Amino acid sequence: MAINDNILLKLRDMKDSLTPVERMVAEYILDNMEEIPHLSIKNLAQLSKTSDASVLRFCKTMGYSGYRSFIVSISASLGSMDEQQDDPYTDIQPGDDLSIIINNISRNNCKSIEDTLSVINRNEIARAVDALRECNRIVFFGIGASGLVALDADQKFSRINKMCRTCTDGHSQLESAILLEKGDVAIFISNSGETVEILESLEIAKKSGALTVAITKYNKSQLADKANIVLSISTPEITIRSGAMGSRIAMLTVIDILFAGVASSDYQNVKRYLSKTHKILASKH
Rank of each mutant, 00 (worst) to 15 (best):
E34D: 10
T61S: 11
Q268N: 15
H171G: 12
L30R: 03
L47R: 11
L199Q: 01
K279A: 12
L231P: 07
V262N: 04
D82F: 11
Q85K: 14
R248A: 07
I113Q: 05
A205V: 10
I3D: 07
S264F: 13
A224M: 05
L211Q: 10
I215C: 00
S99W: 05
S176T: 14
V139H: 06
A76Y: 10
S118T: 09
K182D: 14
G95T: 07
L18P: 03
G243W: 03
G243K: 12
R137I: 06
E124K: 10
Q85C: 08
Y64W: 03
N43E: 09
K49Y: 12
C135W: 09
S65V: 15
G142M: 06
A250I: 00
V119R: 00
D115V: 04
T239N: 11
I204M: 08
C110V: 08
N121E: 07
S264N: 15
D169G: 07
S40I: 01
I105H: 05
A177K: 00
S65T: 15
T90D: 11
H278L: 12
E27L: 05
S48F: 04
L39D: 00
S112M: 10
V21T: 14
M14E: 09
I187W: 01
S265E: 15
A45F: 11
A263T: 00
G246W: 01
G147S: 00
T216S: 15
S51G: 03
I178F: 13
A2W: 12
L18C: 04
S190A: 14
K42M: 09
G170D: 10
G63W: 11
R241W: 04
I113H: 01
D82T: 10
S17T: 09
G193S: 04
D96Y: 07
H285E: 12
